[in-house]
Design a protein around this nucleic acid. Structure first.
Lengths: 343, 343
DNA sequence: GAAAAGACCGAAAACCTTTTCCGTTTCGTG
DNA sequence: CACGAAACGGAAAAGGTTTTCGGTCTTTTC
């Protein structure tokens, strides 16, 4: 009753079928469909109509085999939750207009052997390039140079300076955050952040200190390092408010930490943004829009990162020099209620 | 200096190269590498070594062209944040062991024309099957029956009963949640949930009422519908606590709503789980582990869903009847501190 | 020692598309 | 009317792999 077309027979329709149906050779059919010039207008029309009628879809495999380009890239990730990788993927998809390239998404689950497997599988599928996405902004081992396709590292840079890496500019992000706080009139700013072994933490601190320095100010107290959790955000803010009751802003190393800070401020009856401003990093949608008040944050522009990664890959295929080193992507400030009172 | 291999020359090594290197024909080389029986042991060894030495990677495109199977599936989604699609993708990847199949992830951004484009692109790449992932559990328009490959709908069922859909069993989830609350000794349970137009909301209500009924109990007050946000969770719980101060559990329609409930309980000095138990749905990692206390939740087992989707696709290719209708996946209870005091 | 059987290897077709090159037709021009 | 050119359509090769079938060589059996 519910017999499907793909079972038993009804093979996919090929160019030969179209050609026969239109009464021309496959060569002509191909030329007509690809807009080559050596075919008369009425012949082209006939072929197009035949293709339409048979709902012909060209076999990209055969094309790729012949042309040596598949129009695919492999996205190799270890970002288990997909928080970073999804915007990067969307950016890559969009790099050349909708549907022009397709992306194989592979999750290595942080396992090196698994990563090797996936890598091999992607190469056997003749992807045109590789985008490697790490889950932290720390350097990660290179997947190797002797690969037959261009490789771009995104979010987490490669540990090999000969590789090309595109990462968010966390120093600029730190600077941008502090400049915003200053422009809101804040002067007594403390900084709570995550794991000090993360490059992201250090870079943001660096940028923040630069901006403070430029304004002739200093951070209130020491930078408070620990882990990237709301719990730490809560605990650290509690300590902070006790030790320095007069602070007027908390710069938080992530949106999660910022949410914790908001919770503690609320628990202790401090008004946000009236008494204290709070700002986070990542602009992670679920975090920033669900807090009380909504959270001002620094967006790392991941989608742009994905887009330029894909563009670099195909530029390299077209003969451009791949380039190397670590390139940074400027961040973007998104202002919400945690730093500026709602209109 | 940093010249890359993929620029200029050094073509990918082919089976012909391996064969020549090993001093055999391509036919023999192919048989040797694929473990066919018609080749002598020492010949096979020689071929294998040659392949190793030249670091030969078979061209899957050529294989697919010939065999008519590519070992790829297309994952067509509109889940912008990737919250559901990532576990489903991981399940699909794992369905046949690591690296056996690869997944094209396509984000249609909720745009129908874009979806059509992506669909066509995937078909032209000769994917072996299609997995369509919706962002809500409501029925979604079918992508059509006249496709040359099997299609499975996951998370959001197709609106066409002839299609096969795999979805989380939200009725069972509702039941499971209430049964857990009852087993914790709760008797006065209220229910705050999201948008009433969502099937997920209705199904969970249904299951919850069934379980209460079986225990001879009733819900405290009416089901409170509105939106899937923390804000609503907070507001609704405030109303609830004022109107029915004696409730001992809040069943929340999502983890986000549950977080809101926890916040309000805390604001009003109610102890969780001492005075009030709170339970959510989805088992969304960031939500459940960052709340105070950590949140008990119902996990929809999305990874299993993705796995069986992929298995169904390939079973259909092997001639099995595809089946149709909506099949459900049993949920799993994950107990945390919001219903049971920490040991 | 010869014939039959078995083990092993290789040539070639097939998959589907693109592109080059060549043959044919048509048209314009002298 | 004839010639050259331009326009158009088709045959064939190429891309890398798998599989079938036939051929060669070794082994076994009487």
């Amino acid at each position: 009753m519910a017999g499907k077309d793909h079972v038993g027979g009804s093979k996919a329709v090929t160019l030969t079928d179209v050609a026969r149906f239109a009464g021309v050779s496959v060569a002509t059919a191909s030329k007509a469909l690809n807009g080559r010039s050596q075919v008369a207008a009425h012949t082209r029309a006939r072929v197009l109509q035949a293709a339409e009628q048979l709902s012909f879809v060209p076999n990209t495999l055969a094309q790729g085999l012949l042309v040596g380009r598949t129009g695919t890239v492999g996205l190799l990730t270890s970002d288990l939750q997909g928080r970073f990788v999804i915007p990067i993927l969307m950016g890559a998809e969009d790099a050349f207009g909708a549907g022009r390239i397709n992306v194989f998404l592979c999750d290595a689950r942080g396992d090196t052997i698994r990563e090797q497997h996936q890598l091999k599988a992607l190469l056997s599928r003749r992807v045109d390039g590789l985008i490697v996405v790490g889950s932290q902004t720390d350097r990660r081992p290179s997947v190797g140079h002797d690969l037959p396709v261009p490789v771009v590292y995104v979010y987490a840079p490669s540990d090999d300076p000969d590789d090309l890496s595109l990462v968010p500019d966390n120093v600029a992000a730190g600077r941008l955050a502090v400049e915003h706080l200053l422009s809101c009139g804040r002067r007594r700013i403390a900084h709570v952040t995550g794991d000090p072994s993360y490059a992201a933490a250090q870079d943001r601190v660096k940028g923040a200190l630069e901006a403070l320095d430029a304004a002739g100010l200093e951070l209130v107290g020491e930078v408070m390092y620990s882990e990237w959790s709301e719990r730490w955000g809560r605990d650290a803010t509690a300590v902070l408010l006790e030790r320095y009751p007069d602070i007027d802003a908390v710069l938080c190393g992530s949106d999660q930490i910022a949410r914790g800070a908001l919770d503690t401020a609320r628990d202790q009856g401090r008004k946000v943004p009236g008494d204290i401003a709070v700002i986070g990093f990542d602009n992670w949608d679920e975090m920033v829009t669900n807090s009380r008040p909504e959270l001002t944050s620094i967006d790392p522009n991941l989608q742009l990162l994905g887009r330029s990664a894909a563009q670099r890959v195909f530029a390299a295929l077209d003969g451009d020099e791949m380039g190397n080193g670590v390139h940074t992507q400027a961040p973007r400030l998104v202002i919400r209620g945690s730093t500026v009172a709602r209109r």
